[in-house]
Design a protein around this nucleic acid. Structure first.
Lengths: 210, 210, 210, 210
DNA sequence: TATGAATGAGGCTTCATTCAT
DNA sequence: TATGAATGAAGCCTCATTCAT
């Protein structure tokens, strides 16, 4: 009996996942509004009614999708901030991790950047808020890292939050344009080293810093 | 007669502008999809049919709106790249100009960042492309500036395009979060100096650079 | 200008009426739930969107329909209670008026009896309440009439409200079955005289009353 | 084996009854259309598929429900018409029985009055007809009683069918409003005596009858 | 036989666009 | 040229019924 309900549970999860994957595909291609429930259902190979057994609205699919991935990214970043011994090393890891994640979740990332910027005004905010909070958690996580680095004199005296924000902007912008590129392209992760250097050292020539 | 047609022309432009302003207001508040033509027309104090005399679709309003502002920003940035004598100075001007523009065009900027990221997939791309090209033109403009700076040994050896992209990401991210802040807030333009310093010098402590 | 807007007003009312008539037809044939907006629109010879310019929901059509007629009936009954000189005469008028109204509004009356009884549980009550109140107003109106009759010793000592209720039940039941009869049938109004006699004198033989 | 199949039979009936009770609860609260099969199944503690083993459609549940109760009422009324010695006494019994039945079957009666009036048009009529016929059987039963009373000079010369109809209308109306009353209320059965008197003697003062 | 997940037709409503006035 | 009422396709969601387990 327990066996049976366990299997049910697993199947339930599997179907749910199926739908989320289909939704991710569609949303990343056409955006939230231009994706219809019919398309999601078809893409997931389910009848519309079935989709509604798992999610009570289109919005909920969207939010679940974004939230799950944002959480995943957040926890990966958390680990990264514990990895290296010095703050600059940790920062390098953070950058590496985010780029790698983006590389492996391109469909999602199209949605994500879109979400990061434009969703708040377009969908009822109760949900959107939750995602937005998670995004800010990322910012804060790195801000904390920077703060520690400053304390350890590994970083200059900067405003941690603003700086974290700027870093994420750099990364998102880079990721985004990279994803949009049509043809074959160099590895996104490879840009990590350079971005770390840029962020740590700026672009100014040596003399600028003396 | 010529007088008359000139007046007509002026009136035409004035009405068109009126509509664009109304659309900017509405789009910035509710986003593209949640804004209806009826709302735009009402907000512009025209009948719906009249709006359609000026723009052949809702999409076109949106694109015209974004395009005009992006063009304005682009030309402001062009001027900025001619201003100072050295590349770093020009770069500071670029940053200052973009922030000032954002400060004065908050409504638009909400739309813009949204556009920058999420629109392409949601609206037929023929239009979206035009805006996207203008965005890339900004990137290229600054990339050129960086290239010059490198040649003049004012900047380190970096990939100009990638670096320009990173800079814009930093700025957009900063602008966006600033706009979203609810209460009274410090001037956006004031962040310019710091962002310039960050970008030019990185956050690494002095020793990192030697 | 005033001319024009007056004409508009009239046309608006005409169209609204058109829709109500169509709705009355459909509702009376299939009931509220089995009637679709598409059917109403088609029956009214309008596109669905047009119907929604006049009524913001299917429910609103239904309520408007019922409310208007109930009001009409109520005001007819009010007049009737002012007509005759004695209470029994007034009562006869009330009965006559209600039957005549039913005769001329058969479609509506099918809906009405249904409404009177079954709607409250099936549709959100905010609206239903309004109709229900109007129905009670009819009861009260006649109750008042009975009270006066009692005071004038024209009626026996009975509970006015309960008695009024019983009278309306008699009438509704009679009307309803009459409407349902398929073939040609004797005039409904002709039953009025007999119903008045029944109500005033009961069915008991003379001896019962002594 | 026979034992076994008898038990099966009993169990079958018990389950069926369970479902009907659940349906009665739900229908009386939300009406036919606003009650879903899922709700009925849940309320009856069965799976939806199981419900369908007993009734082949939602409609059938509804009809079975109404039919069974109407039959019960009908047979109670039949007994009542055999009870007393004179027609007026029998009539009093009829009234008493119907009111008592309504008192004990409030949930059902909400459905019933609704059915009595509005259902025919809303659900395919094949079924509705059966219930309607049972209702008419009640009318006829009492009509017969009245006819007998007339023959025995216990009643005046009235049209038996119309009169029976009027009586039932009085009762239904009274019952219905009584059920709808929210707070604590006087006994419904207590109204029986008065209603009998009203029906037998009318409301006219003595002089009206001479 | 009991279960309850899956189905998919159908309902209500919105809104970009057209066109008669 | 300006108006805004009319259009109707398309979207989201519900739920009676079926059927594989």
């Amino acid at each position: 009996m327990d066996q049976r309900s366990q299997r049910k549970q697993r199947e339930y999860e599997a179907r749910r996942e199926e739908i989320l994957l289909a939704a991710e595909r569609m949303f990343s291609q056409h955006g939230f509004f231009k994706t219809s429930m019919a398309e999601i259902a078809e893409s997931a190979q389910f009848a519309m009614g079935t989709v509604y057994r798992f999610f009570k609205s289109k919005e909920e699919i969207y939010i679940s999708l974004v939230e799950a991935k944002v959480e995943e990214l957040l926890s990966l970043l958390k680990e990264a901030t514990k990895s290296g011994s010095t703050a600059p090393e940790k920062l390098r890891d953070v950058i590496r991790v985010k780029l790698a994640f983006a590389d492996q979740n391109r469909d999602f990332f199209r949605i994500y950047v879109s979400e990061w910027s434009g969703f708040e005004w377009t969908v009822k905010s109760a949900f959107g808020d939750r995602v937005w909070k998670k995004y800010l958690a990322q910012i804060d996580l790195v801000a904390k890292l920077i703060k520690d680095g400053i304390k350890a004199k590994e970083f200059r005296h900067v405003n941690p939050k603003d700086t974290s924000l700027a870093l994420h902007g750099m990364l998102n912008s880079t990721i985004y344009v990279w994803i949009l590129q049509a043809g074959p392209k160099e590895s996104l992760v490879d840009k990590g080293e350079w971005l770390s250097a840029l962020f740590l050292g700026g672009i100014g020539a040596a003399k600028t810093n003396t």
